[in-house]
Design a protein around this nucleic acid. Structure first.
Lengths: 354, 354
DNA sequence: TTGTAAGCGTTATCAC
DNA sequence: GTGATAACGCTTACAA
């Protein structure tokens, strides 16, 4: 079996420094009760041998692995979620500052996700979890709560007795509707996400509140649901545009969905931003480079990941989870996929009939 | 400190089953020398208590953690690499099948990357590494080779005495040039990647070979270099199009760069696929949804990740790394960003002057 | 077939 | 201040 040669242990350091290994340990863990002289000698030996404590041995004693875990939804090999990759990157960078690592796993279903969390808890491979894409009733969170295992959720659930970091989804979508209504739109469609996702529910609530605020009657036909992929967004957009009274604006649950919708709109021969306004959500970089650049709401996935990681570390170190709950606003990034309606819904319908 | 209550250990299982813990261990590790009766009793106890061996304790004894590591380039919070996220997803899924996990870290520079690998090796947190985005001379690979630590590279380097999985970059770019030359283009630009990256060198070599095969003289002015981001691709495209004799086709080192280039072309008032042909590389999903859909070469990042993970497991289990070297072809995905040149370079120049 | 006990590399509790 | 030494939870000779 391939093995590393000459692993250097605390005994090697102790021998080289001419002390007991207990002393080495105390120096390395800053007990501060060692004489400056032996301290230096030990530090030198550590340096010379390139000694690093074995995480396994340390864990065995301490009960801590300095590793956080995250269980991602398994992609199908076609739709890696750009939000998650930025989020991950944020976590990893925050962790780097605190000398901890991140264990990444995937799960292909809710039950599988629960099982994976369970396995990781029991095999004690992580000190805590970051849970993403929370659902209204989230079985992962139930498990974690019941086990008393540290975690931070990105997104809330019905139950909120834990640490979470969330974007004010409702407010963002209220503002999105307010924005397009101010542009003059009255037929405003909503391309929503799966309603088991809590953020999807919140965004839908914001959409409805926005309509109410604008004095527009809520038309269920304009409110659709799709998976978080481009193809699904395209399909949902086609469906809404086929209505007798099609929407002149589409508010989309994510940028990915919006990009799919844009593809569909274009395929129907319509001009985005003129015939049909599209608003996304996420602020993905790619949105700035497509045609026309996508107007969207931005939450920094990177910042969210970093902050969630930091919060989790606090919780692991004993901070009351209830003191780590943060709601942050998303900002409108005005680009060019929105504009005043150039056609009435009827005219839109006619131009589609051709 | 937040801790899990009542962790169940092998002793608990042994007690409940009324046997010695050694016996429990043997059953769990399939020594097959235990009587069916006690075996059942033990398995039942394991089931009832929900016992999972502590990874730390197991590691201490076995010298194996069943965890693979990957050190990603730290994004700047703006440009998460979609290729890497799909690649990660592929790894994670392959690992799930073998009950192993993935440790993800980031590094913000070459030296930092080496340091992180080193720390992970020494603290024995992983059994092996997957190295991505290899460079011609790769300090990470030097380190790993010197330490005799198991790894698989995604991409080759100058030295090839290790396990790797790579796409035939050179061939793909030769074919890209062949393709646009067949369409009638003679001024073919290249938006290359940083030449410290080995794949960037290979792709450039393919570009040059393609020119040669097509009987087109190599013009250094048409060969540029950029970072792997949209903005950098946009800038490089602008530079080439400002030449006195601008290219009518742009072969790009990645889809991300191509998308940036498309933005720049459009901003100059030119039609993609008619005035300027653009060819990408990676086959990112988003390429199908932008306008016009991007013609590209596709390698499945997901499959690559999964395969690399599997290869690494083999190497860790003792397979000779030299028996795990695989070169796979990339396939042309014909979409709509390419076409016969509608203008000569001179005409292109003139239309730009306006 | 099963029990006993030695260690894996740490940290922590004692004495000295 | 520092050195022994006992855990931590597991695997694996070796005995029985």
């Amino acid at each position: 079996m391939a093995r590393t040669k000459n692993t250097v242990t605390i005994d090697d350091v102790a021998r080289l420094a001419g002390v007991a290994k207990g002393t080495v340990s105390r120096v390395l863990n800053n007990y501060g009760d060692t004489s400056a002289k032996t301290r230096d000698r030990i530090l030198q030996a550590v340096e010379r041998l390139g000694y690093q404590p074995s995480s396994a041995a340390r864990k065995l004693k301490r009960g801590r692995v300095d590793t956080l875990g995250i269980v991602l939804p398994a992609g199908d090999g076609e739709h890696a979620d750009p939000f998650l990759s930025e989020f991950l990157d944020g976590i990893a960078q925050a962790l780097d500052l605190s000398d901890r690592d991140l264990l990444v796993t995937t799960a292909h279903s809710d039950e599988h996700a629960v099982a994976v969390h369970d396995r990781l808890i029991r095999s004690r491979k992580v000190d805590g979890f970051i849970v993403t894409r929370t659902q209204g009733d989230d079985p992962r969170i139930e498990l974690l709560l019941q086990r008393g295992f540290p975690f931070v959720a990105h997104g809330r659930t019905r139950n909120t007795g834990f640490a979470w970091y969330d974007v004010d989804n409702e407010r963002a979508f209220l503002e999105a509707v307010r924005h397009v209504a101010a542009l003059g739109h009255r037929r405003i469609g909503f391309l929503g996400g799966p309603t088991r996702m809590n953020f999807a529910i919140q965004r839908r609530a914001g959409y409805r509140k926005g309509l109410e605020e604008a004095g527009i009657a809520h038309d269920p036909a304009l409110e659709s649901t799709c998976e978080l992929s481009e193809s699904s967004g395209a399909e949902a957009a086609r469906t809404l545009l086929r209505l007798d009274e099609p929407p002149t604006a589409l508010v989309c649950v994510t940028d990915t969905v919006a990009i799919g919708a844009m593809g569909a709109i274009r395929a129907l021969g319509l001009a985005i931003g003129r015939d049909v306004t599209v608003i996304g959500y996420d602020g993905l970089p790619v949105g700035a480079y497509i045609d026309p650049p996508l107007t969207t709401f931005s939450q920094s996935a990177h910042a969210a990941g970093a902050r969630a990681a930091r919060m989790l570390i606090d919780v692991i170190e004993g901070v009351d989870p209830l003191e780590r709950q943060e709601l942050v606003p998303a900002d409108l990034v005005k680009r060019s996929s929105d504009g005043p309606p150039q056609k009435t819904p009827q005219e839109l319908k006619e131009s589609l009939a051709k």
